[in-house]
Design a protein around this nucleic acid. Structure first.
Lengths: 197, 197
DNA sequence: ACGGGTCGGGACCGTATCGTCCCGACGACT
DNA sequence: AGTCGTCGGGACGATACGGTCCCGACCCGT
């Protein structure tokens, strides 16, 4: 008696977007749980409920799959609304940073990939170009507005300013592993306003 | 004709310190080059010029070897000298941070282990207790002195202050992968003085 | 003099992983 | 109606790695 193969109808002569989506989700979940190095292609396929072939039809390797998957997390960067004051804008920036780095998937993945990027140039470039750059652009707008309002001197070092905005949140969250509260962000905002105006 | 074994005289009934030392160096080198996950016990043994047995005579596993090795990097924490002013002390703190995080071996290893610590509680505790805590204590002294001098209000949030001291250096160096210059530290110090006094 | 523990070296085992290949079933486009 | 490329599934190969074990050589303290 032959083995009965029971399987739902599938596929056509084109990559199915819904499968691509669920693979991407599976990659992010695995990445968040295990980290890049411990992420296994079999586990991703299992989690996504697809065959391993489906993975290799889309990406040539684990690395390219990871990079391109994570890079898409960089896309949804909404502009920071003009709150009318530097203090208000800055606080909104900090919230946005926390939304991102504090996300239970994104934060850990980012921290993990930071370590991997060290020995992987293409991943490092992905982080810088696809992730960091668009976000820094948002902060830059805020600084420009503050200067235009006359709240901040025009000669400040913008790069430095962006560094000190984001760095404490990351540091506290993922290096010190302590929670970041709204009160913490309030304090950071107060400090920065004092430092930059 | 039997194989001729040529080997320098070795060992006695006690662990040889010189071997332990060269193993530790090999671990740090491998860690800096490959990261924890890609560090192989065979590679460490080869690099140190010892047998793999020598490793397992000293530590029960790769993880314990790594943690205890890296923890020793936390030892040499010289106190920050009293420069007479908050600005001066703070600048010295920033230099110390850069000395540590900017070290070509320590910085990369730290960044790497940050990612690994995420899924490894004992390594996370090692980082916090053996590495972070003693260093934060140094910064705390500086804050105490500044308060005693009357340069800084006594009610500031010390934890927050320490965060914003160290975070920018790490962020710039290992997240953004941009160099940190003395001028950069000068600017950070200026900002912090303005923010905290 | 001797025994216990270390030395380098290497064989070995179990396991995990990436990536390839093949299969029968299937569906959209020509 | 046919063709082409996808679908899940699984077998497979090659490789690498952590950890264990054993060996003969060696030396220090007793």
């Amino acid at each position: 008696m032959p083995e009965i193969k029971r399987r739902t109808p599938t596929g056509a002569a084109v990559l199915r977007q819904d499968l691509t989506d669920s693979i991407v989700e599976a990659v992010l979940d695995e990445l968040a749980e295990k980290g890049y190095q411990s992420l296994s292609m079999d586990a991703v396929a299992r989690r996504a409920g697809v065959g391993k072939s489906a993975l290799y039809r889309r990406w040539p390797s684990k690395l390219e799959m990871t990079v391109s998957t994570f890079a898409e997390l960089g896309v949804p960067t909404a502009s920071i609304p003009d709150t009318g004051s530097f203090r208000g804008d800055l606080r909104a920036v900090l919230d946005a940073v926390l939304d991102w780095l504090g996300d239970p998937r994104i934060g850990p993945i980012f921290t993990d990939l930071l370590g991997v990027a060290r020995t992987n140039e293409s991943l490092a470039r992905g982080l810088t170009d696809d992730i960091a750059a668009p976000r820094r652009a948002l902060g830059m707008e805020v600084l420009d507005r503050a200067v235009a309002r006359g709240e901040v001197p025009p000669d400040i070092d913008r790069e430095l300013a962006l560094d000190v905005f984001a760095a404490p949140v990351f540091w506290r969250l993922h290096a010190r592993r302590e929670p970041v509260t709204p009160e913490y962000l309030d304090q950071v905002a107060d400090l920065m306003v004092k430092a930059f105006t």
